[in-house]
């Protein structure tokens, strides 16, 4: 990222009346461009992610929602030819800047993936892995406590409290996904990113996760990518519609679904394309 783009971004922020009027933004994205080699995947995204709100990212496949999500906790760093330009900040601090380390950032901005991916270890070990490597807990009882509170928050405690030593991979799909959410919560993140967390789950497990997202909103800021329009309408307060690497529209969820300003948004949510 060049100095030039940065000053340009600062200026844009100052003149943006929406940013000043909105409630506290946990994360801010300004003019975010992502390239995979020569191919541009995101063409300048500006979004404010508000604290203790759920932001849903919707849009047709390949529009860059997941790419944007992965920029927020720098998961794109692991992709060799991926290049990110623009500014993304967490509490006013540039996440690609020198003062934030990717490892530290990922502890503060947790992630839940599309396919439930528990470690092939016990349920207990799945939860304590993060706290252990970050030094959040060293004693047995501290860890026990983290396991219990994380599983309770993820709504899984009652189902697994008697078999914490059994492998996490032995749970059902929905339980595995909640285990992954518990694992993300265990390191006490401020933001949780969810990349189509329900796409591999049945409707009942999905309903479970959706309820959970609503509860988690009290303590965490959540960004969720979803292909399911009803889900976006149900769980989110803000919705952003992506199309071909552009963010077409970002507004209150109700507004987007009842009164979209852009034609493309309307077309997509009514199922005419995408």
């Amino acid at each position: 990222m060049s100095i030039q783009t940065r000053t340009h971004v600062k200026a844009a922020e100052a003149t943006n009346p929406q940013a000043a009027a909105a409630p506290a933004a946990k994360m801010v994205a300004r003019d975010v461009k992502v390239f995979y080699g020569a191919k541009q995947a995101l063409k300048g995204i500006n979004i404010d992610i508000l604290e203790n709100k759920v932001l849903a990212l919707i849009g047709p496949s390949g529009c860059g929602k997941s790419t944007f999500l992965r920029c927020l906790n720098r998961m794109n760093d692991t992709i060799d030819n991926c290049r990110v330009e623009g500014l993304i900040s967490l509490d006013g601090e540039d996440v690609y800047g020198r003062r934030i380390d990717a490892v530290q950032l990922r502890a503060r901005v947790g992630m839940v993936f599309q396919k439930p991916n528990p470690f092939p270890k016990s349920i207990y070990d799945n939860i304590v892995y993060g706290p252990r490597i970050h030094g959040l807990a060293s004693h047995r009882d501290e860890m026990d406590e983290i396991v219990e509170t994380s599983l309770k928050r993820a709504g899984l405690w009652n189902e697994v409290k008697d078999r914490l030593r059994e492998p996490g991979t032995g749970l059902s799909g929905g339980q595995q996904q909640r285990l992954c959410i518990a694992r993300a919560i265990a390191v006490s993140p401020e933001v949780i990113l969810m990349d189509e967390p329900c796409s591999a789950l049945d409707p009942i497990a999905t309903a479970h996760i959706e309820e959970l997202i609503d509860e988690l909103r009290e303590n965490y800021t959540i960004v969720i990518v979803t292909h399911n329009m009803q889900q976006a309408a149900r769980v989110s307060q803000k919705t952003a519609f992506f199309h071909l690497g552009d963010m077409v529209e970002c507004d209150d969820t109700e507004e987007i679904f009842t009164n979209p300003r852009d034609e493309r948004t309307q077309g997509y949510i009514t199922g005419r394309y995408g």
Binding site: V103, A107, M111, F113, P120, C180, A186, V187
Partner: peptide, 17 residues
Amino acid sequence: PPSIREAALGVGASRLQ
């Protein structure tokens, strides 16, 4: 599977970890 690597990185493990 890459999902295992992502899971570890996602909770803030370094690449070596």
